[in-house]
Structures are given as structure tokens and as C-alpha cells.
Amino acid sequence: MCACRGDACVVPTSITMTLYILKRVAQAIPLLLGVVVFNFVLIQLAPGDPVTLLVGDYPAPEEYVRQVRAEYGLDRPLAEQLVLYLGQLARGNLGYSYANRMAVAELIGKRIGPTLQLMITALVIAIIVGVSLGVIAARGRGKISDWIAQAGALVGYSVPDFWLGQILIILFAVTLAWLPSQGMRSARSVATGFDAFLETLPYLVLPATALSVRFIALFSRITRSAMLDILHADFVLGARAKGLSEARVLIAHVLRNASLPIVTVIGYNVGLLIAGSALIETVFAWPGVGRLMFDSITKRDYPVMTGILLMVSGAVVLANLLTDLAYAALDPRVRYTR
């Protein structure tokens, strides 16, 4: 506990925070390195010539295959190969996709926009709906509303999201013909900028909904239990005793303090979100990274697969790091205890 007043407090707090950040970043680096080594081991262990996994199962010119062999030193000892592999990655070279005639990094870069759009939309829906459901369930604990919300969460968590996507297509695109189901805009569209964004919205509704359901379930469960932990805390009793309205007590006091575990769950589930979007993009022909993953599997385009694995792993490590930092910023206790 800090007994000092005013400016004196700022210094030690910012030092512990900086130390904490440094410590967490230092922990993230070996994890990333581990991913790269793991990738390397996979390429070595997989049946067949490793060069196939670096070039892809595609009729590439002999000259290029020879070049890859030399670049990655495939005739050298393993340790040397690993160093060369790390060197290529450090230069941002994720490989080249002959099937797409494009560098893997560039290919992923082109596809990342639609994926982010889908993920962020789904996340926003999930947070709004999930947290609201969790609050309703916690408030009506033991009542029918709680029971329905809990049962709904259990079902939502059990249903495969890609199948839910198919059902949404059958219901809303085929039977009712309300919404489009494939791609992110009309093939004839010439719109650019903001107009293009507006055009994608109807295409976004179904995939984003399908992707969000699992997270609505997850967020409503965690919100409910986090709220129940706090609902009977002394300061909530105090707020009630002060005569604050129920809504104010719930939002300003309970939900605000319950937000920490909620933030953590969101941050730690970015990986799950990416996996979900890979499947959803396949169902809805959404032109993002997930669809690229599916295509690269059918084309046996190995460099694209490993490139996506590296990128996704990096994103997850980064998301976890940011989550921990956000947690530390929101809750000072973390910085001292860890």
C-alpha cells in the first residue's frame, strides 16, 4: 500500500509498471521463438522432402526449388538450417507461394483486412450481447431468466460455429432471401472507400453473428460469475445503502469491478476467435486469412500454411501480452504480486 500523497506516488508506481512490462515482454520472446522452432521441427519431421514444404506441392520451376534448397541450406546440418530459417524469418521472409505467385507475407497482408473486419464485428456483438446476458442472469440469479441465460450459454458453447453459419445461410439467405451469404460484396460492385464499406455490411451480418455465438456464451458465463462474486461485496452494499439506483449500482459499481475477469477472458480467447473465423470464412466465402488457410490446404500450399500459423501464433502471443498489460494497468495489485 502506498501511504504517500501526490507526485511522490507516481514514481514508484511507474517504475513497477515498467518493470512489469519488461518482464512480460521478456517472457513473450521465448514463446515466439518457440513457435518458430516448432514450425521448423514440423517441416523437418513431416514425411517427404522438406523442400516440398517450403515450396508447396505445386509445379514450381526447378531453378526456384534449387534456390530454396540453397537459401535454407537443406543439405547442411540441422542446427545450421535452423539458423538460416530464423534468418529468413527475421528478414520478414515467410516464403513464397507458387500457387498464388506471390510472397506469403504479401498474400496474408492482402487478406488480413476482411478477417479483422469480421473478427472485430463479431467481438463487438459478443461483448454487448454476452455482457448484457451475464448481467441479466446475475441479477435474476436462480430465477427463470438466469436459467434461460445459463442454458443458452451452454448450448451456444456446444454448437459448432461453422454449422451455425450453414444454418443461418439456409434460414436467412436461402429460405427468406433477406441477406447475402457468399463473399463480402457484389461481384459487379465498383464502389470504393466508405461506399464499399457500407456495401459489405449486409454481407457481414450472417458470418459475424455465427462467429459471435460462442463468445456470447463465454462472455455471459464469465460476466455472470464475476458479477456474483462482487454483488455481495461491502462496497456494493454501501452503494445501495447510499440510495443509488439499481442500474447505477450495477453499472458503476458491480460491472466496473467485474470488468477485469471479462477483459482477461476476451484477451485470452483471441486464438479461439481466429480459429472460429477460419471456419466461418470458409462457410461464407469471406475473402480473409481463414479462407486462405482453407484454400492453401486444398492446394497443399505448405508455405502459406506455415506463414499463417506463424502470424496467428504471433497475434495470440501479442494479444495475451496486451491483456496482461491491460490487467496490470487496471489492477495495480498484479504488478506487485507477480
Binding site: 521465448p30 514463446l31 518457440g34 513457435v35 516448432f38 514440423l42 517441416i43 519431421l45 513431416a46 514425411p47 514444404l53 486464438g271 479461439l272 481466429i274 480459429a275 477460419a278 488457410m293 490446404i297 497443399r300 505448405y302 500454411m305 506455415t306 499463417i308 500459423l309 496467428v312 501464433s313 495470440v316 502471443v317 495475451n320
Partner: peptide
């Protein structure tokens, strides 16, 4: 524990996809 942390952090589905695609 470091190894378990490693496997816990990584996206399981994408990892499983790549491994199965590599090894059949």
C-alpha cells in the same frame, strides 16, 4: 511448465490444421 505454457498459448485449431495437413 514452459512447454505446457507454449502449448496452452498457441491456437490449437490452426496448429492441428497444419500438423494434420503436413502429416496426413
Amino acid at each position: 511448465m514452459r512447454v505446457s505454457e507454449f502449448f496452452q498459448t498457441l491456437p490449437r485449431f490452426v496448429l492441428a490444421l497444419v500438423i494434420v495437413a503436413f502429416f496426413g
